[in-house]
Nucleic acid binder design. Structure first.
Lengths: 223, 223
DNA sequence: TCAAGACGTGAGTGACCACTCACAAGATGG
DNA sequence: CCATCTTGTGAGTGGTCACTCACGTCTTGA
């Protein structure tokens, strides 16, 4: 019973931490409780992690590694913009159900609770996706896959805002409630509808272009 | 110096509470510190509010009353959809600068810290805007002001998601940082650009309709 | 096989903080 | 002007929890 911690056990400790932090938040989660639930002593937890903050950041890292894999998926493949977006929405729905805690860890840092790390974490976490999305939109613009009259950085930002809110809306207590208020008690039984409506929203924002507007003008003159 | 609390003083207490809660969050904010900063004793604070939670909820109510006024503005007036949206974006920018703390109070409850009140608060806070936005979109759809092939509830939801994220992006530490990563260090000096790009994004999502798509198809055949 | 080092244990400690209560200082009114 | 009531005061209390350390148990290598 009294042995060196295995990799397996270290994993259990992190997962237990993630579960507690995701549920209670950084400050309300109790280290003694986490240790007990993970089946180890507090002492050994402090041999591996300097303090509560360091442990929290380790849990966060593990959660983010997972979430970042979804974006990596976005980068691979040769499909066009919208096919990729559709893929991302489905991935988002799938992983939000599988690992809501990872998403809630992310949500946790966006609120004030870990203010001191906000700039560092933002750079670590958002840096990659911001670059990927912006570059992708710039390229799509050059290829005329999407409209020409937009600011790629801004549109990448709005795009990520929508995805981020969808993540939270599947995972966090408050946002789940809000989602139901907007879209009905049974939204969570209708992933296909959510996917198609969100895709429609994003598609239109990205694809209406000036030629279409000119065209519409011509139509009006005709009638 | 030792007198009954005036309305003025009660206001100071709430505002001090809002400042502390917005900065530190529900759990990290210290009641003794709030009392000292507000220039009163802890004792009297507990004569007015049953406990910390009750005081927090009172601070939250005050913040929300203010934020809800922005939506009320949205309901008034006879302009069309997009003119109203433009007005809302400008209001959002203005009030986020004037009272970032109110927005951060709102952000605070969306994270886990006040989980026990999540359902109640969501219903209180989101109920009104959800109804207003959905009805507005439904009506605009009937009048053919916007496209016909959308689910009004879903689009109201996406719309509010974008506005909510803009609020947070102006006010919260983490989201401000993220905004800069996406859109450059000087985003906050360029409200007009943000307004026009966000409006463009929303406008397109709402106005592209099936007739335009048919039309585009005809164009393709011609060429 | 056993000594010495490595590692895990968990009761204990001190700091912090929500909340109380005995008291003090105004207000009221006769 | 004093008795009584109302209201504010803030040191104190009890509970919680991050973190430590003296100890026990396992591992290693000679």
């Amino acid at each position: 019973m009294l042995k060196k911690l295995t990799e397996e056990q270290k994993s259990v400790i992190l997962e237990t931490g993630i579960a507690e932090f995701a549920e209670k938040g950084l400050n309300q989660a109790n280290i003694n409780v986490i240790a007990k639930k993970a089946g180890i002593s507090v002492g050994v937890l402090y041999k591996y992690y300097k303090d509560k903050d360091a442990f929290f950041l380790a849990c966060l890292r593990r959660s983010l590694d997972f979430l970042e894999a979804i974006i990596a998926d976005f980068m691979n493949g040769e499909e066009k913009m919208l096919a990729r977006v559709a893929k991302m929405i489905r991935a988002l729905q799938y992983y939000s159900r599988l690992h809501p805690n990872y998403v809630n860890m992310y949500n946790e840092i966006t609120s004030g609770s870990s203010k001191k790390y906000a700039p560092m974490l933002a750079r670590q976490i958002e840096g990659v996706s911001a670059k990927v999305y912006t570059e992708f939109i710039t390229k799509a613009k050059e290829n005329s896959d999407i409209r020409s009259d937009i600011n790629p950085m801004m549109f990448a930002f709005f795009f990520d805002n929508l995805l981020m809110m969808m993540h939270f809306s599947y995972c966090s207590e408050y946002y789940r409630e809000r989602f139901k208020i907007y879209c009905g008690e049974d939204v969570f039984d209708n992933d296909a509808l959510i996917e198609s409506e969100l895709l429609k929203f994003i598609e239109s924002a990205f694809t209406i272009d000036q030629s279409a507007i000119v065209h519409k003008g011509q139509m009006d003159i005709k009638s």
